[in-house]
Design a protein around this nucleic acid. Structure first.
Length: 124
DNA sequence: GCATTGACGAAGG
DNA sequence: CCCTTCGCCAATG
């Protein structure tokens, strides 16, 4: 079976719910779900944890399908390296992300997490 | 099939 | 200190 399977090259990213996939995207979702309440993390930290810190953009891109994941991924706990809610515009409403964080005890001001450095959580 | 666009980040000018 | 460029990789036009 040394034959090269050309069909296995294809790696669908975001598939409809119900399909199990183990792609870079799913790994991002898994880590994001592990973020404790009242804490936040950055795209770069997740990417670095997965061994691709230069691919922080892909982490953000993966979040595009976060809301269709089951269970839903707390994307509001993921901010950029400055602690700024760079993804707030991608939520149902531009203020939803901030409200969700405040509901979990995270203060947000000027689209930025207050005392971000202290609330930063990093995956093991 | 190539060019543009990103929920980023680090480096360079 | 602010702005620009590069890298990364996938999706979209």
């Amino acid at each position: 079976m040394a034959k090269k399977d050309k069909s296995s090259d294809k790696l669908p990213s975001i598939l409809p719910s119900g399909v199990k996939e183990q792609s870079f995207f799913e790994q991002v979702y898994e880590v994001a779900r592990q973020i404790p309440k009242g804490r936040v993390t950055t795209y770069g930290e997740i990417a670095a944890y997965l061994g691709a810190k230069k691919s922080a953009r892909m982490v953000g891109w993966a979040m595009n399908g976060a809301h269709v994941q089951e269970p839903s991924v707390p994307a509001q706990r993921v901010v950029n390296r400055n602690g700024m809610l760079s993804g707030k515009a991608h939520f149902a409403t531009p203020t939803l992300m901030q409200e969700l964080l405040e509901q979990e005890g995270i203060a947000v001001e000027n689209d930025t997490v207050v005392d971000f450095k202290n609330k930063l959580w990093k995956p093991e």
